[in-house]
Design a protein around this nucleic acid. Structure first.
Lengths: 361, 361
DNA sequence: TTGAAAGCGATACCAC
DNA sequence: GTGGTATCGCTTTCAA
């Protein structure tokens, strides 16, 4: 395996010059540069990243911590990250974090603590204070995407706004008996994705209730409301379930099983949940959107197939953005792009398809 | 950031001894070993993998080349690989290969050619001869999972047998009008996954045809058959489509749209394709399995939800196995396990659920 | 069993 | 511009 000294010898220059010529750092006469490059390709020289890292302290490698890979959303985001990293000449080292067991500690205390990655991108994982400190002590920039907790840089959509928007869409269509299929844990963790989307749902319902009241009373003190799942004039209910298709299916069967209390519209916390609901509705002989309107979140690759109205987010693009921020924190960014509005939530947009329709009188 | 010299000084030994004590290589008095370990943890010492790699030539890092991440199957396999690698103290560097453009060459000629990975696991990618040679020249073991082409080690299910088994299941249930939703390219690439499963389908149909003939004629020359899509007594048809849910849906609508030629059973090349078919059937008012039996391949996480009969394979387990083989090729395997039957196909099994039933007379 | 010293393969500082 | 040289942090002979 050829080393830089071989290149240097062949080109008739010193190692130092060869290094400069190949790395582009420092000035080298164009003529010698050509000779060196020529010599390098002649013997198939490729610099050893280890040796370079050792002296520069940079590895050109970014660690990515992610809870799952086997779902469309995370997979898509991972692809976005990978593409961006590869394009910038960086490697991506994957840490697929299992459920917080001893393996998690090992990842943070050993794998990420070593000098093998320049920065860490953390997807949908709530870092403990200790984990953050550990990385900061080693001066590794952290970019979080989704999740909560206070870390350095965080990219996130506004989940509360998403819940609000989705619910408003249903309300605007005239639905007054609506349900929200929230993610498991929405109640216990108000700041989780599930909790925030559910909060947005409740906000929208409360606002609608207020609109239905005497404007005077509205000014006086907002909408009176009952329990968290009974919000006055609008018949709203929140059901927690796993946010996958099976979760949506089961919750859907349960929710739609009794004709008496059946809602006319459902806001599912994710598209996959929505797919499950749609299947449940079909199974029960209900027609979407005639008997039931359904809206989800994500704009999953199969959303079009289910003709699902949804709040779109672009995971791959979010991944790309995370890389951009990370590289910028490393001061490695050659591009002159302005900073993305730091702290501003990531873009989402309502995509109206055929699964939502006006409430029938 | 503490270096090994700091540990050595604190423990009152030389760098050499400290290294031996911490790495476990070479003999060190138990007492001094304890002192060193103690000193190391005291100052939070973690060895620099770069420095170690530089001298040992080993990186404790494996590269994984994979075409997609955003699908359940590949994601699951990636998780299996990651878990196994992490457990063995290895890092996983991900190369999400895009569609064979210039990026592909860059991955093989630059990223993988450097001394950054000890071995490469290649998922469902057909390596060119040049790519294989390039890695071999650098003495990097290659383990392929799925895909075709001749590489060093290859783990793969027997796709032809899978096609055979799935089709036989339908035939045994008495179906005589059956269709195969093959993956795109099945016809053009007979050795691809799609091509092999389709071949298995044809084999099963041919065998069934033979059984329906006079035994004498059968000995004489096998089943006479028409075109590739018209296989005699058994009414069999092969349709190529994208192997996802949308592909299955579209093909399903087309296939099941005309009541006259409607098959009573479908063998879908993958579970996702099968999901699409099931939805198409439901959309057309057909009941599964009463009007249509459907069988898929994979045992996708949603297969149970669709009550889908399928040929199960275990991608995560396959990933784990790939790692085992790779580490063994690196001579790094501490376990005394016997070699897995080298070259033997990976396990698959028929999982019968409710989507397949006897053909109605 | 332990220590001294020679690299591994690059970069970067400092003269020239 | 270019060439020596120290250096990054570790492992590994070779002696003691």
């Amino acid at each position: 395996m050829p080393a830089i000294s071989d290149v240097a010898r062949l080109a008739g220059v010193s190692k130092a010059t060869a290094s400069r010529a190949l790395s582009g750092r420092g000035h080298v006469a164009e003529q010698t540069r050509l000779r060196v490059v020529q010599a390098a390709s002649e013997i198939g020289y490729i610099a050893s990243p280890d040796a370079a890292s050792l002296v520069t302290g940079r590895t050109k490698n970014v660690g990515v911590v992610i809870p799952f890979v086997n779902s469309w959303f995370f997979g898509e985001m991972l692809e976005g990250i990978e593409r961006a990293l590869l394009g910038a000449g960086y490697d991506l080292t994957l840490y697929n974090l299992p459920e917080g067991g001893p393996a998690r500690a090992r990842v943070f205390d050993f794998f990420l603590a070593r000098k093998r990655v320049d920065a860490v991108i953390v997807i949908a994982v709530d870092l403990t204070e200790g984990e953050v400190r550990g990385l900061e002590r080693r001066e590794k920039p952290i970019v979080c995407v989704g999740g909560s907790g206070d870390a350095t840089a965080r990219l996130s959509i506004d989940d509360r706004a998403v819940g609000l928007l989705a619910t408003e869409h249903l309300l605007h269509l005239g639905h007054t008996r609506i349900a929200h299929l929230a993610g498991a844990g929405a109640g216990l963790q108000p700041n989780s994705m599930a909790g925030l989307r559910a909060a947005g749902f409740r906000d929208a319902v409360a606002a609608a209730d207020a609109d239905r009241m005497d404007p005077a009373a509205r000014v006086a003190g907002g909408a009176p409301r009952g329990s968290a799942t009974e919000l006055g004039p609008i018949d709203a209910i929140v059901i927690e379930t796993e946010m996958g298709m099976p979760g949506g299916f089961e919750a859907g069967l349960q929710l739609l099983g009794h004709p008496a209390h059946r809602p006319t519209a459902v806001f599912a916390a994710t598209d996959e949940t929505a797919f499950g609901v749609i299947r449940a509705a079909e199974r029960l002989g209900l027609s979407v959107p005639r008997d039931l309107s359904v809206i989800g979140v994500d704009d999953h690759e199969h959303a079009a197939l289910f003709d699902l109205t949804t709040i779109a987010q672009a995971p791959a693009e979010q991944g790309r953005l995370a890389v951009e921020v990370a590289l910028r924190m490393l001061g490695d960014d050659a591009r002159a792009d302005p900073l993305p509005d730091s702290g501003a939530p990531l873009a989402t947009r309502l995509v109206v398809r055929g699964s939502t329709a006006r409430a029938t009188a």
